[in-house]
């Protein structure tokens, strides 16, 4: 029973990570109807920056953590403005190619600057077992806690602030948004910045578990995709729920049914399964395209 509880809790911790990645994907999808294949590598690169701030810069973890989020935000903002803005009226293939280009560049740059050797990433949480329990640890509790805080902050931002409302308006109906004076292009870039910032949080939290290297986000991105699709790619709340479902399911299935060797294949099956059986996801809305 204890072992099972442990799997559930690890699953929730992983789920928090997947939920964050999924949310980042959903934010960009709702605003642009594009799936950002570079999301994982952007998060990985941000995590390396955090690592460098701690290891090379000698900063305290939390200072580095916050600084990295800010840097990631600016990076995401800049990428939208510089790389993607000029492509907004190009065909889908061009944009997918640009995303793949970004993926490759970040992967290569990380290896170039920081090296390909696997690095340990510190955890800000104590290593002692919490409350004398053997089936959970502080890093997992902290991961769940931080992701929940981040998600709540985002929720409050989008629901309660005029800027959040404007960003939603720009994503849902750009033309009407312009007619009330919203600078839609700026909102898009802000959305990219936020997505990159959320991704960086996920990266810094997961790096302690999976260790830091240029390819660390590949599997996590795949699970992020699966979560986003499961929850509905146009539904932020759904993506978060999807993330936690996928996290728990992955851990429990991995421990008792399939084994950990085929994790990526499980994600693949999940992705294709959702796309075939319920393309709109559990909470997404069906979109009917008119001719």
């Amino acid at each position: 029973m204890e072992a099972f509880l442990h799997q559930i809790f690890s699953g929730l911790a992983a789920g928090g990570i997947y939920a964050s990645v999924a949310l980042a994907l959903v934010m960009i999808y709702t605003a642009t109807h594009h799936i950002n294949f570079a999301q994982g590598e952007m998060a990985m690169f941000a995590t390396f920056i955090g690592w460098a701030l701690i290891e090379w810069g000698g900063l305290n973890f939390w200072v580095a953590f916050l600084l990295t989020i800010v840097i990631a935000f600016c990076g995401g903002f800049a990428i939208e403005r510089i790389v993607l803005r000029p492509l907004h009226d190009k065909p889908v293939l061009s944009i997918i190619i640009a995303f793949i280009g970004l993926l490759v560049i970040f992967n290569a740059l990380a290896g170039w600057i920081f090296g390909f050797t696997i690095k340990a990433f510190p955890s800000p949480f104590p290593t002692s077992p919490p409350f004398g329990n053997r089936f959970l640890n502080w890093h997992e509790i902290g991961t769940v806690g931080i992701t929940v805080v981040v998600l709540l902050l985002l929720f409050a931002f989008f629901r309660l602030t005029p800027l959040g409302l404007a960003m939603r308006a720009a994503a849902f109906n750009p033309e009407s948004a312009r007619l009330v004076g919203i600078r839609v292009g700026l909102m898009l870039a802000l959305g990219w910045g936020l997505a990159a910032a959320i991704g960086s949080v996920a990266g810094m939290l997961v790096a302690h578990v999976v260790y830091l290297d240029p390819n660390m986000m590949a599997g996590i991105l795949l699970y992020g995709f699966a979560s986003a699709l499961l929850g509905g790619i146009d539904n932020p709340g759904g993506a978060v729920v999807g993330g936690f479902i996928v996290g728990v399911a992955e851990n429990v299935l991995g421990a008792y049914v399939i084994g950990t060797e085929l994790k990526l294949s499980v994600a693949l099956v999940l992705i294709i399964g959702v796309l075939l059986v319920k393309p709109a996801g559990l909470f997404g809305r069906r979109i009917v395209t008119r001719v």
């Binding site: 005029p162 409302l165 404007a166 939603r168 308006a169 849902f172 109906n173 033309e175 009407s176 948004a177 007619l179 009330v180 004076g181 919203i182």
Partner: peptide, 21 residues
């Protein structure tokens, strides 16, 4: 506008408030 330009996913009040953005 033509077609009314409603933000269909937002609430009525959010729609109205956006006008004063």
């Amino acid at each position: 506008p033509d077609g009314r330009g409603t933000f269909v996913q937002l609430t009525t009040e959010e729609n109205v408030r956006l006008g004063a953005y």
